[in-house]
Design a protein around this nucleic acid. Structure first.
Length: 221
DNA sequence: ACATTAAGTGATT
DNA sequence: AATCACTTAATGT
């Protein structure tokens, strides 16, 4: 059993990235039971089927969240940004369920991990915690509905642009480093489809293409 | 120079 | 839109 030590560094991170968690006792409790974790780019943080033992509060970097279906095919869902937390982990924690999703560090990641056993009681003890969780849920749900729309209506071109924009934001650069194959895998599409759509975007002057590289020329991101 | 991997293309379903 | 078969281009050894 690890001894809980009050970590003032966490208070600082909370103040900076989670201003909505303003209650002093809550901050102090997080600083006592929470731990700071670092993950290198590309590292899997939580895999499908694993039991969730902590809830992450993302501080730095981006986390790619994707789902894997029965055939082992992957589908990109969304990116987590600093100030956001993984909605899935709440449910998984509370119900002691295995993870349905995989999370991978898109770039170098810094997060505060909170052991799952506190989720429940904080919901009743801290108003700001409750709000934080519910707001996160609401936002994520809306975004997922959006994603489902895109998939259901099979607008591959829109899905691709959406994906590229999110990836650009997640990587904090207008130049994306990825192969067409990798993108296709994330979108559950064929490589050729991605190549053709990217070609078209290039003809429209929206992107510049290179091997392993897609540069966004659009200014809005 | 050669092998390997990424990307582009046309045809077919 | 997926798959196939093939070409072309870029990169590593």
């Amino acid at each position: 059993m690890t001894k809980s030590i009050f970590n003032p560094e966490i208070i600082e991170l909370l103040r900076k990235h989670y201003p909505q968690l303003a209650e002093k006792p809550l901050q102090e409790e997080i600083a006592t039971v929470g731990e700071i974790y670092q993950f290198k780019a590309g590292k899997t943080i939580m895999d499908v089927g694993a039991y969730v033992k902590m809830m992450p509060l993302l501080v730095n970097g981006s986390i790619k969240v994707s789902r894997e279906n029965e055939d082992g095919r992957e589908l990109f869902l969304y990116y987590l940004r600093p100030g956001e937390s993984c909605t899935m982990s709440f449910t998984c924690c509370l119900m002691h369920k295995k993870s349905e999703i995989r999370t991978v560090a898109e770039d170098d990641v810094l997060l505060i991990g909170i052991p799952t056993r506190y989720m429940d009681e904080w919901m009743t003890r801290y108003q700001s915690w409750k709000n934080f969780v519910l707001t996160a849920y609401d936002q994520r749900l809306l975004e997922l509905i959006n994603t489902i729309d895109n998939i259901a209506f099979q607008h591959m071109d829109d899905r691709l642009v959406d994906y590229l924009q999110k990836k650009a934001i997640a990587q904090g650069s207008n130049t994306i480093e990825a192969t067409h194959q990798e993108i296709a895998y994330d979108l559950n599409a064929s490589r050729e489809a991605v190549s053709r759509l990217l070609k078209q975007l290039e003809r429209e002057g929206r992107v510049a293409l290179g091997r392993n590289r897609i540069e966004f020329l659009d200014k809005r991101f």
